[in-house]
Amino acid sequence: MISVKNITKVYSDNFYALSNISLDINRGEIFALLGPNGAGKTTLISCICGLIKQTKGLIKVSNFDTLKDYRKTRALIGLVPQEFPLDSYESVLNTVNFSRGLFGLKPDDRYIKNIIQSLKLWDKKNSSIITLSGGMKRRVLIAKALSHNPKILFLDEPTSGVDIQLRKEMWDMILQLKRNGVTVILTTHYIKEAETIADRIGIIDKGKLILVEQKENLINRFGKKSIIIEFGKKIYEIPNKIKDFDCFITNDNFCLVIKKLKNNKDINIKKMINIISELKIPVVDIKTEESSLEDIFLDIISERV
């Protein structure tokens, strides 16, 4: 659906916002682009949407060049920006209708009503934007982006400043869009968001795309599992048989934490229990913890730092 080939964006001060990025995004998938502030997420989205012209490289949307065939590619794309760039004194209905017209489509009251209703804004259709809450403004931006029935939707930090309930409703909406065949690309700081709804994850840092993986593969490849053994009395030394593993004793000296990569078959709970039972120290509890996508993301970024 989207093919990015060797994209570089250099600003006049010789700052490389994007360095030789290549990426393919498949039709109907939810792709999450993660990265720290200033990593190049918004620049990459802006290049695909036509807001910024890349210095080098080629971007194709549905096999159309975003520069040469910009009318065709832009008609396929809806963009929800990070900020609230809205005309404060315009009404919800007018601003959504404006977006549809701007994308070259004739008015369609029924379609617009459906979108506004699905985003729970119908009661506010005649309200000025200035009177809306942050969450409502965010939904207005989504309604505007959907007003021309795009096949691709870019969501740049879609749930920032949104309460938990609304965030979950937005996730449901994004999943529904996916079921309707819309390709969704989102950037987010809430790694939990990517973990919950994304099919594939891309991590970008300092203008370079570090990795692109299926979410499950990423978690399996980089995810860590911790085995936490809680003892009935304090321990002060790691048993010899597990000294070679990535393990440590907690500060209160009651717990032993053994870390392992999820796909490491050398360490398993049964084996650990056998080793620990040989110590003749009473065991109170054994539990396991798995690293989240957030932990993986932080590990990858901190390794680069």
Binding site: G50, L79, D87, L102
Partner: peptide, 18 residues
């Protein structure tokens, strides 16, 4: 100037319009 000021120019610049 107003869309430039409030940021909504992004929508005009990303629309299929010359």
């Amino acid at each position: 100037y107003l869309p430039k000021y409030n940021g909504s120019i992004f929508e005009i610049m990303s629309a299929p319009i010359s």
